[in-house]
């Protein structure tokens, strides 16, 4: 009971903070819009894959991009918590480290999912004004995508928290995650199809869990996927479970 209350308390705090930081909410809308309109629109005038409009093609990729950036970046707040000593207040409370980790996962995942829901709204608007033909947003396709996105988000938030728990300074955190986020994004097939890749590139993409998430969401929303959707789901579940285990361990070892 007390652990649940503690988890709720941490989640409540993350929500308040998220909703009060307007700049975070706004940038979470602007950034994907820029990608969809400029990269999607610009490249789309010259490129299309398998008869699918390029803007439509990258939409699932942009959903994952939002999940990737927002989730991993969430780890920086644990570094801030340490800096402002809020972490001490939490660590000295009668709550297990595992619950702290779970509370943070809930907080980070909710942040990310709210941003993703906004992106789905933008998707609806785009379909209705005639952009992104071929994008199929219905209850089932959105539900399947959300499950994929949620599982992936949990794994990605864990990565951010693992790094954050070991870092002392926000600057250091940002440096490390930029080495992580960009390869994970570019090597995921978010922007191009992953069939017929050059032999040297393919292995990088196949070891990247985000590739399977992009593939699964693309399968649900566009009916166009490279792997079997069950394989996609299996891989991201495995990825998230492993990250949760590492994260729990990292939090137990975390020093103030």
């Amino acid at each position: 009971m007390s652990e649940l209350k503690g988890i709720y308390a941490l989640w409540y705090r993350e929500m308040k903070v998220f909703l009060r930081e307007r700049s975070r909410v706004i940038s979470s809308i602007i950034n994907p819009l820029l990608w969809l309109l400029i990269i999607g629109g610009g490249l789309g005038s010259a490129v299309s894959f398998g008869g699918i409009n390029y803007q439509t093609f990258i939409y699932p990729g942009i959903l994952l991009q939002t999940a990737l950036f927002s989730s991993i970046f969430f780890g920086v707040y644990i570094v801030w918590d340490k800096k402002i000593d809020f972490m001490k207040e939490v660590l000295v409370a009668p709550m297990r480290r595992t619950s702290l980790f779970v509370g943070k996962i809930f907080g980070g995942s909710t942040d990310t999912l709210l941003q993703i829901l906004i992106l789905f709204l933008i998707g609806f608007v785009f379909i209705n004004i005639g952009l992104m033909p071929g994008l199929n947003l219905n209850v089932l396709s959105v539900a399947i995508s959300l499950i994929f996105l949620l599982v992936t988000t949990i794994g990605l938030v864990s990565i951010g928290l693992i790094i954050g728990s070991q870092m002392e300074s926000p600057e250091g955190f940002q440096l490390i995650i930029s080495f992580l986020i960009f390869p994970m994004f570019f090597l995921s097939g978010a922007l191009f199809p992953i069939s017929n890749l050059p032999a040297w590139l393919a292995p990088f993409i196949f070891v990247n869990p985000v590739s399977y998430a992009v593939d699964g969401v693309r399968g649900a929303l566009l009916g166009f996927s490279q792997f079997n959707i069950t394989l996609d789901f299996g891989v991201i579940c495995l990825f998230s479970i492993v990250m949760i285990l590492i994260g729990t361990y990292a939090f137990k070892k975390m020093k103030i």
């Binding site: 009971m1 503690g6 705090r13 402002i84 000593d85 009668p94």
Partner: peptide
């Protein structure tokens, strides 16, 4: 219970919210 030398409240939350959070953390 402990009152630290350095401030450890969340400045984006209100005073009341910080206290409520504490009450939850201590069940």
């Amino acid at each position: 219970g402990i009152v630290f030398q350095d401030p450890s409240s969340d400045e984006i939350l209100t005073g009341y919210e910080n206290l409520k959070l504490h009450g939850w953390l201590y069940d």
